[in-house]
Amino acid sequence: EESQDIKALQKELEQFAKLLKQKRITLGYTQADVGLTLGVLFGKVFSQTTICRFEALQLSFKNMCKLRPLLQKWVEEAD
């Protein structure tokens, strides 16, 4: 059922947002740094506010889903 899928996805997004924040802090990056690095990787800079709202799960579900693969890549590249 679709609502189950969405619930599962939301849970996954929550966990990912936590992971992103932990990783960012561990590596000593600011939210603005992450936004700028996305610009380098994908040619589209994201504001500190956007990263902040992603981490706080304050973006729309659709936006969270759109941003996630980009931030996933950041997490992979950041090591």
Rank of each mutant, 00 (worst) to 15 (best):
V45G: 09
V45W: 09
W74H: 13
N63F: 09
V34S: 01
L67C: 06
T50G: 03
E12F: 15
T26S: 15
K11G: 09
K7L: 11
K23S: 04
K73I: 05
D33C: 01
A32M: 04
Y29K: 11
D79Q: 10
N63W: 01
G39I: 04
Q72H: 11
I6N: 10
Q4K: 12
L27D: 09
Q10M: 11
K62L: 03
E14K: 15
L70C: 09
S47L: 01
F54R: 02
L71V: 01
L57R: 08
F46V: 15
T49D: 12
G43Q: 06
F16Y: 05
L67K: 00
L59T: 03
G35C: 02
F46T: 12
Q10Y: 12
T30P: 00
I25F: 05
R53A: 11
G35H: 08
L19V: 10
K66W: 07
Q15Y: 00
E12A: 06
E76H: 11
K62W: 01
V40K: 14
C52E: 13
L59Y: 15
E55I: 06
G43S: 02
L41S: 01
Q22A: 09
G39K: 09
P69L: 06
L13H: 09
Q10P: 08
L27R: 06
M64W: 02
F46I: 13
Y29E: 06
T37C: 01
L36G: 07
Y29G: 03
K62M: 14
M64K: 07
Q31Y: 15
V45H: 12
K23W: 00
K21S: 09
I6R: 14
I6P: 12
T37K: 13
L20V: 11
V75S: 10
L27K: 07
L19C: 14
K66T: 09
E77C: 07
F46N: 05
A78M: 11
E12H: 11
D79V: 13
A78L: 01
Q58S: 07
Q48M: 15
L36K: 13
C52N: 14
F16K: 06
K44A: 04
Q31L: 10
K44Q: 12
V34A: 01
L71K: 05
F54I: 09
M64N: 03
L38V: 04
A56Q: 13
K18H: 04
I6A: 12
D33V: 00
S47D: 07
F61T: 13
D79P: 15
E14W: 06
L41K: 08
Q22S: 15
G39D: 00
D33L: 03
R24S: 06
T26C: 11
K44M: 06
Q58M: 01
L13I: 13
V45N: 12
I51N: 03
T26Q: 10
K18G: 09
Q4V: 11
A56T: 08
S47M: 00
C52R: 15
Q31F: 12
S47A: 06
K21C: 03
Q31W: 13
A78C: 06
T26K: 05
K66G: 09
L27T: 01
T49K: 15
C65L: 14
M64P: 03
K66I: 05
L27Q: 03
C65D: 14
A78K: 09
C52K: 15
K73A: 10
I51L: 00
Q15N: 12
K66M: 13
S47W: 04
F61A: 09
T30V: 05
K11M: 13
T50M: 08
K66P: 04
I6E: 05
S60R: 03
C52F: 06
Q58K: 11
Q4A: 10
E55R: 03
N63Y: 06
F42D: 04
L13T: 00
K23E: 02
Q72D: 06
G43N: 06
L38T: 11
Q15V: 10
K44D: 08
E14C: 04
S60W: 06
V75A: 01
F61P: 14
T30Q: 02
D33S: 03
Q72W: 01
L20C: 10
F16W: 06
T37L: 07
T26V: 08
K66R: 12
A78H: 11
F16M: 10
T30N: 00
F46C: 15
E14G: 11
Q72N: 04
E55W: 03
K21R: 09
I25W: 06
L57Y: 14
Q15K: 02
S3D: 12
A8K: 07
C52I: 11
E77M: 12
T50I: 03
A32R: 13
S3C: 03
E14M: 07
E55M: 00
G43L: 02
L27C: 12
T37Y: 09
V45Y: 13
A8G: 09
V45C: 10
C65E: 05
L36A: 15
Q72A: 06
L19F: 11
L19R: 07
N63S: 15
R53H: 13
L57V: 11
F42Y: 11
T37G: 15
Q48L: 05
K44G: 06
Y29Q: 13
K62F: 10
F61R: 05
Q22M: 09
S3T: 15
D5P: 13
Q22L: 00
L9M: 14
E12S: 10
F46G: 01
Y29I: 01
D79T: 10
E77I: 11
Q31V: 02
L57C: 12
L70F: 14
K44C: 06
E55V: 00
K44N: 08
T26D: 12
F42P: 02
D5N: 13
Q22K: 13
T30E: 00
Q15S: 10
R68E: 05
M64H: 00
Q10W: 15
F16D: 05
K11E: 11
L19Q: 12
N63D: 10
L20P: 07
C52D: 14
S47F: 10
L41E: 08
I25C: 07
F42C: 13
K62D: 14
F42V: 14
D33K: 14
V40F: 02
L59P: 07
G28Q: 05
W74V: 08
Q15D: 13
Q4W: 10
Q10C: 04
Q72I: 10
E77V: 09
V34D: 05
A56G: 11
V40C: 15
L20N: 12
E76C: 11
D79G: 07
R53P: 07
R53D: 11
F42Q: 00
T30W: 06
L70S: 04
I51T: 06
G28R: 03
Q72M: 07
S3V: 15
A8C: 14
K62R: 09
V45L: 06
F16L: 10
K23D: 04
L36V: 12
Q22V: 07
Q4R: 10
Q31P: 14
L13K: 02
L27G: 05
I6H: 03
F46Y: 08
C52L: 11
Q10S: 10
T26A: 14
E14A: 14
G39S: 12
E76P: 00
A56F: 04
S47K: 03
M64A: 08
W74G: 09
K18F: 08
E2D: 06
L57E: 02
Q31G: 05
K11S: 12
E77Q: 14
I6S: 11
L41Q: 12
L38M: 14
T50F: 15
C65Q: 13
L67D: 03
A8L: 07
D33Y: 00
E77N: 15
V40T: 15
K11F: 02
F46K: 09
L41A: 02
